[in-house]
């Protein structure tokens, strides 16, 4: 809008607020905050046009620590506030910060609809598979059998996969990353910001207090490449620290992990296509430890977003009827005159 207000160069420090960060020592949230503060200056968006909106939970303290506009709202409702704001000012860069409880339990309905509407904003869902702020109950993404204070004999509930929910909700950008792989996380955040329309990013995040072992080898710098596959549009699905493994489609049209060598070569592997919803659905069903966990941009398609649609209707209506005239509005009925 007003280019003269953009400092020549924004740095990470410009996005650090004056509030003390109060997450537990070692919490994965620190890494996500740091990556966000590092990524934003690279986007070329003036700071005053950036808004963070969160719900309730550990992750939802995020806006207080960002020196941008922000609202720490109520449990699960951040997508609704963000939608109202985006409709009012389509020019903003809006970030919804949520968690597995906030976004998929109490706010599940809103998450689904904000994605289906393709509202122009970014959703970052911190998934630690446990309730942290309420001190350690199971969440909708907790593994079956997970023992917590509210499930001493283990949960008997089937967990849900956030990426599958996003795909089913027709999100136009769906990605996944992990707190400990900061470079990858930064790249995914930048890609999400660059996408027009809704972008959904699941970030595997470590809760050191209530679920410290959840991500196991995925958090281990030496091992992680054997357990994650970094999806790249148009590239064969190769993974492993020696890049000697891959994913192919077997005779039953299911993904299958294969060793590259004599029996299978790169040519036998699936070439990832981020535009294919069917492929994205199938790949998103791959879960550790049976498969490498898919990371990176899982789906990206271009579609008109909600605010574009709305503004186009306003323009069309004004072109057709002229700008609203109160005289005409009041008189759009049968009239009579009393003299």
């Amino acid at each position: 809008m007003s280019t003269n207000t953009i400092p020549l160069e924004l740095t990470r420090k410009d996005f650090v607020s004056d509030q003390t960060v109060r997450w537990c020592p070692g919490c994965g949230d620190y890494a996500i905050l740091a990556q966000m503060q590092k990524t934003l200056p690279e986007l070329g968006i003036p700071r005053e046009k950036i808004v963070f909106i969160s719900g309730i939970g550990c992750s939802s303290r995020f806006p207080y620590y960002m020196n941008t506009y922000g609202i720490h709202s109520i449990h699960g409702r951040a997508p609704t506030l963000a939608t109202g704001l985006a409709v009012t000012n389509p020019d903003l860069s809006i970030w919804v910060i949520t968690g597995d409880g906030d976004g998929l339990s109490i706010g599940g309905n809103h998450l689904l609809h904000v994605m289906r509407r393709n509202v122009n904003l970014n959703i970052i869902l911190f998934n630690n598979r446990v309730y942290g702020l309420t001190k350690g109950q199971y969440s909708p993404t907790s593994r079956k059998g997970f023992k917590t204070k509210s499930s001493p004999m283990g949960t008997i509930e089937q967990p849900i996969n956030p990426v599958a929910i996003a795909l089913a909700s027709e999100a136009t950008f769906v990605a996944r990353s992990i707190d400990s792989h900061t470079q990858h996380l930064g790249e995914v955040l930048a890609a999400a910001a660059a996408h027009k329309g809704v972008s959904f990013v699941e970030v595997y995040q470590n809760c050191v207090i209530f679920n410290p072992d959840e991500w196991g080898p995925l958090e281990d710098r030496r091992e992680r490449d054997d357990h994650m596959i970094y999806l790249e549009h148009g590239k064969p699905m190769v993974f492993g620290r020696n890049r000697d493994k891959g994913v192919r489609l077997n005779e039953r049209f299911e993904p299958e992990v294969v060793q590259l060598g004599e029996q299978y070569t790169v040519d036998d592997l699936i070439v990832y296509d981020a535009r294919s919803k069917a492929l994205a659905m199938m790949i998103s069903s791959m879960e550790h430890p049976y498969f490498p966990t898919p990371m990176g941009v899982i789906r990206q398609v271009s579609a008109p977003n909600y605010t574009e649609g709305l503004m186009a209707q306003i323009e069309a209506a004004q072109a057709q009827k002229g700008k609203g005239d109160l005289h005409k509005l009041y008189r759009a009925a049968d009239l009579w005159e009393v003299k």
């Binding site: 997508p79 609704t80 939608t83 109202g84 704001l85 985006a86 009012t88 000012n89 809103h110």
Partner: peptide, 15 residues
């Protein structure tokens, strides 16, 4: 609930 939330967001935005 979403209707109310959207109104808060819109108010924050100046509508």
């Amino acid at each position: 609930i979403a209707a109310m939330g959207s109104v808060i967001g819109a108010a924050f935005g100046g509508a």
